[in-house]
């Protein structure tokens, strides 16, 4: 068992400009946490920059697996090393590690298995693009219909998981755009999910992977995988 009970997983793909700051913020915010960077086969110096931050573990994946495969590597590590909790903080700097505390408090108070940091609940965060807001609205109604739950920010990757959800998601985690899909999976397995409002930043460097052209494709793909997850009784 490692020194900390909480593992901070930072998936990163070509984030050499952001990664160091994200790691340092995470270490400052959660001093008793361990930081694990999953370098998803970046072509820039993400791995080197991450190591330079110090007191950090870096997993260099041999080929690009996408966000789902990268985060699942974190779940597997957390499962093997016996962590009680795992929090995902994206390597692009959008998630503010200082807000992890809110996620942890919510988990303690509510006894949930996964806490989602939502940028649309209570707190004033930066405005995302209209396309993304529309997509999130569609998911909102979809989730209300399918699992009877109000999820205001189903695409948020800023999440805290407890041991139960770690063990489940280490076994299976969707490949691309896994966040909305994972909600259905956890619910289907009887795990409890809740949301808490957090502040988020607009990214400082680089661009989002979902461009307006890719949006409809993203929506279709996610909705299809949500549908399959919903119909699936076991895997």
């Amino acid at each position: 068992m490692r020194k900390g009970r909480i593992l901070i997983v930072i998936p990163a793909f070509n984030e050499q400009q952001n990664i160091m700051q994200v790691i340092r913020d995470a270490q400052d915010s959660i001093p008793n946490g361990d930081v694990l960077v999953i370098n998803d086969c970046s072509v820039d110096n993400t791995s080197l920059r991450a190591r330079q931050a110090g007191d950090v573990r870096v997993v260099d994946l041999p080929c690009n697996l996408g966000i789902g495969g990268a985060v699942q590597t974190g779940f597997k590590y957390a499962r093997e090393q016996g962590y009680h909790c795992m929090v995902q903080v994206d390597g692009d700097g959008q998630h503010i590690p200082a807000e992890i505390d809110k996620l942890m408090q919510t988990m303690e108070q509510s006894d949930c298995d996964m806490v989602i940091g939502s940028r649309f609940l209570d707190v004033d965060s930066f405005r995302t693009s209209w396309a993304r807001r529309m997509g999130i609205k569609v998911f909102y109604y979809l989730f209300r219909m399918l699992i009877g739950m109000r999820v205001t920010d189903s695409t948020s990757g800023f999440r805290l998981y407890n041991r139960r959800s770690i063990e489940l998601l280490a076994r299976y985690y969707p490949d691309d755009y896994p966040e909305p899909d994972a909600i259905i999976m956890l619910k289907k397995h009887g795990l409890r999910i809740c949301e808490v409002g957090v502040a988020m930043r607009a990214r400082e460097h680089g661009a989002s992977s979902i461009t307006p052209i890719k949006s409809p494709y993203y929506m279709a793909k996610v909705m299809l995988s949500i549908f399959f997850s919903y119909t699936r009784t076991r895997w």
Binding site: V59, G69, Y77
Partner: peptide
């Protein structure tokens, strides 16, 4: 392939 890549990354660490 995904499982192998993850395992390889973790083993390397």
């Amino acid at each position: 392939n995904k499982a192998l890549a993850q395992e390889l990354g973790l083993t390397r660490l």
